[in-house]
Design a protein around this nucleic acid. Structure first.
Lengths: 210, 210
DNA sequence: GAACCAACCAAGCAATTGCTTGGTAGGGTA
DNA sequence: TACCCTACCAAGCAATTGCTTGGTTGGTTC
């Protein structure tokens, strides 16, 4: 008979519930622009009560971002270690990234928007490390692609890496789950554009998989 | 030598100087993250003195963004009105965008990072209008491209538009003038990727088995 | 040499910020 | 009954914020 003001999250405890609420606000309003009172209001408690669960507002983003990144880079590592060919790996990395946008939209958005600012603080130095690690992943995939003949050899790899990375992640700005296109559809379309271009193919076909 | 863009009526030099300083801070630290004391410090004056030149901190971004957008959309309009073929127009629009990143990096960065937040205020409603106008430009260019046969007909135009728009503007996050690549080089490389893709062209030859 | 003016200073105010402190309601356990 | 625990409240503090007010400076003009 007690109507508990609880949201339909699968959260075990109050802590992760509050983190999800904070993530949503950080993602849509920005970290600095979100006050602890905003978070508390959205959770239906007073701002001071947040400090029963967390040390600080900073530690909230910290936990949000580091948890997400641990998971994401675990998936990238799995791809790099697989036996697939270069092109397949590249496609998988793109798909994994779009899946992350689908399943962790807030976290991706926070990372996209706040990494530059937060990275300036000692506490968030790991953001720069993860960034470097991400570069390793993509550059490796692109190099392997060129070496194996799957990709054109006249590309500026560094530039291509930036376009690839940016184009994948920036989709978080407009993608909403449950829309017309599933994240898998978007990933496939993006890969088509990226791999084959938007210009009308000149004489011959786009290749089939042998 | 050539006539520089000058302010109407009284050319207050100090005013545009302060605006440029503010733009640099807004771009690198974010609008909300930049205090009026930050701006004043960077300019070597006290924070209160800023209010001799500007009504508010908000009016500073306002002026920065609206001035920039007026110029940018003037260039887009010129392209749309030209007699060039569809593909050339598309290439020119991309080149103009990269030129804007080169010449107005701060303004582009501010628009990229703060439009979502600022757009929520009545005062900045024009940001959403400009966004819609920008969509018109790209969609028109893409539609014309498909209709004229310059572009593939199996593209999701809406998705391609987002890909195109995002990938162009997001370059502001890493591009620095005076680097290894001029903005014209980047535009050309980007167009190559966009139009022809990164996959190795597979004409009739199929001998790429390892 | 008086009037004027743009640019700035010095001081501070009201609101907002992140966070602290001491307390309490309600449930479980012994 | 007594004890503990989690999750919260109530109140407020110190710092920071955007902005205001009244005054000062140095240069220009007539």
């Amino acid at each position: 008979m007690s109507a508990e003001p609880v949201q339909p999250t699968t959260a075990h405890n109050r802590r992760s519930e509050l983190l999800a609420i904070a993530a949503g606000l950080f993602a849509s309003k920005g970290f600095k622009n979100t006050t602890v009172r905003d978070i508390a209001d959205a959770a239906g408690i007073l701002s001071g009560s947040l400090y029963h669960h967390f040390d600080s507002k900073e530690s909230m983003v910290d936990e949000i971002l580091s948890t997400f990144q641990d998971e994401l880079f675990g998936r990238y590592d799995a791809i790099l270690l697989s036996d697939d060919d270069a092109r397949t790996k590249l496609e998988q990395a793109v798909e994994v990234s779009f899946a992350a946008i689908d399943q962790h939209r807030d976290e991706v958005a926070i990372f996209q928007n706040e990494a530059a600012y937060l990275g300036g603080f000692e506490r968030f130095a790991y953001l720069a490390e993860r960034n470097a690690q991400s570069r390793e992943v993509w550059i490796t995939l692109l190099d392997d692609g060129v070496r194996s003949g799957a990709l054109r050899s006249d590309l500026d790899i560094e530039l291509t890496y930036r376009f690839l990375r940016d184009t994948v992640w920036v989709a978080v700005a407009w993608y909403r789950p449950g829309g017309k296109l599933a994240h898998t559809d978007i990933a496939r379309q993006y890969l088509t554009i990226l791999l084959d271009g938007i210009a009308r193919p000149t004489p011959t076909t786009q290749g089939d998989t042998p």
